[in-house]
Design a protein around this nucleic acid. Sequence first.
DNA 1: TACGCGTGGTT
DNA 2: TAACCAAGCGT
Length: 351
Amino acid sequence: MNYKYKKQFRQNLVEWFQNEKRDLPWRKTSDPYKIWVSEVMLQQTRVDTVIPYYNRFLEKYPTLESLAFAPQEELLKMWEGLGYYSRARNLQAGVKEVVEKYNSKVPDNRHDISKLKGVGPYTAGAVLSIAYKKAEHAVDGNVMRVLSRVLHITDDIALPKTRKVFEEAVEMLIDHEQPGDFNQGLMDLGAMICTPTSPKCLLCPVRDYCIAFHEGDADKLPIKTKKTNTKKQHYNVYVAINQNNQYLLEKRPSEGLLADMWQFPMIETKDDINSEEQFSTLYGCKIEKVLENNLLNFKHIFSHLTWEMECSLVKVEQITKEPCNSRFFSKEEIKQIPMPVPMQKILNVLN
DNA sequence: TACGCGTGGTT
DNA sequence: TAACCAAGCGT
């Protein structure tokens, strides 16, 4: 693309963004901390989903320090339902490092900010360009889709090495005067005009410079090969009540799926497994009575696996000491405890 | 590099 | 309805 076209492309894009941009809460601030929080929440997550979480989160944790010293349980409760819970832990670890190592100032260069937990190439570029007006690339799915069409880039965006191609493209095109608006312009264009299916090319401010528009194959780009395969797991879930009307919950391990979140005890059903016996043994309690065998049956679909859940309501008596990662909670106490969506589904039928 | 990691919306 | 998608990152 020659110099004249580049200049017009960025002018049209930035001007379009400044006129048409969405009114979003994180666009009312230039506080690097708040921009950072928004970018982490927005990773693989829709804008409409993030907005209420962002507002609640910053009301609770308005400063780096307030988040750095928050109890993990409370932090996870604030993140409950947003998904990808390691983001919350990584964000807090990163914030702590900024408080301790950088005197509570978010680094303003890619080298340092990229070392923070949970800050990858995209988030680094987004914070640097939006909060600090640095001419840094911030390549996400939107940017790859938009530029694959504008520049007719046919590399497979499912391959990690392809991101570099788009980073170089952004470096070639970026507006050095208003890099934040340029980067966000690419993203808003991707979200509002240059959509995955049925792109609205007739409304596009940069269609004159778009090769795919001229070739008429915008809807064939970007190229993405990867496919998903999801496994199935079947569980018997025990909603166990003791004589004091308290519910047995266990805390999940601190790594892996739904790390550090709480759940009702569940036994994966494989062949030749007596799950009631397993439950009694593992949790040290005796099932006195099965109150309801079909309390709730449902599927919960994760990105990479499906849980098939069969939930029973049982009355139990504590026999031996509880395992250290589980204990009984009253219904009031449960409200303070972070639980993932599949467990929320179960909680909802207990009312 | 490939895969694990949540959830809800869209086609 | 199953598949795919959405402001990615860590390992």
